[in-house]
Design a protein around this nucleic acid. Sequence first.
DNA 1: GCCTCAGCGTTATGAAATAACATAACCAGG
DNA 2: CCTGGTTATGTTATTTCATAACGCTGAGGC
Lengths: 161, 161
Amino acid sequence: MGVDCHHPESAQPGLEGLALADAVAAAANKCERTRERLTPPRRRVLELLLEADGPMKAYDLIAAYGQDGEPAKPPTVYRALDFLERLGFAHRIESLNSYVPCRMEGSSHRAAFLICECCGTAEEFEPDFAPQFAAAEAAGYAVRTVTLEARGLCPACKPEA
Amino acid sequence: MGVDCHHPESAQPGLEGLALADAVAAAANKCERTRERLTPPRRRVLELLLEADGPMKAYDLIAAYGQDGEPAKPPTVYRALDFLERLGFAHRIESLNSYVPCRMEGSSHRAAFLICECCGTAEEFEPDFAPQFAAAEAAGYAVRTVTLEARGLCPACKPEA
DNA sequence: GCCTCAGCGTTATGAAATAACATAACCAGG
DNA sequence: CCTGGTTATGTTATTTCATAACGCTGAGGC
């Protein structure tokens, strides 16, 4: 990432095997309940996000899309990402042009991340936007969504542990 | 913007005349005090940001750069933007790929915006990140910068005023 | 003076995202 | 059923956003 770093790549292991299957199944169930369709490209992109060790760029997804090494066409992946974001299965991290699977239980239109500038991990956390909301309402704004991205060093990368 | 809107473009008038000159002079003074150089391209990009009625895209700046209609070369503008961001004279709005001049007094490494999805204005406000900071520190993170972007409708664009 | 280095101009390229349009699958109502 | 509306996909091309790389210049320390 921005800062050179001697630490091992990413402290955020991707899912595999059963855990991966479970996560995908959970998403599929949620889709059925809401009459949404987890189609093959959408499922595939979700898998890739869940398997990854950290935020993925859209073109990483494009390159990794085909099991045989065949890349996807960009719109395929971007449309899947739109869907996954809309359903709350994934988030875009604006300051990285990257995407992560949602790690929170209750999906909402809120997203907040702690981004390590050393190892590149992006940890999702449950934000408390009360003060910001209050400020916005005081100014007469009707807030729809809020995104927050904090950048710094994660515990593993902090100089003095 | 995203939502179609009948309202007039942007409620955020740019600076002109004396106000513009004052704002640029203030930046120049601040630079002198810190031994930084407000060179012609940097000054020009700052002017353009201050004159604008709302967030500007990098390529808008590039197109508007020359007084005679001559566009700038991309690196010229991107380098100036890097400088202005570093000094706290401008902010990048990630979710819009756009830039605004800093409207706050005390420059800091924090930035928070209320972005109207109707008219496209982006109002900077003073964020209170106390709860987020607490959450981050609790998780062992050393936070360096925080950006927050809230999207919704500004007072002028809200349905029932 | 002369060296160093931040800043600039320039060319070229890389990376991220979307426009546009044709085709195919889903599914509700007759 | 089958037919018409809606949703999703495939494909080609293009647009938008951002940076790499390299050489030149000018300001300020020694």
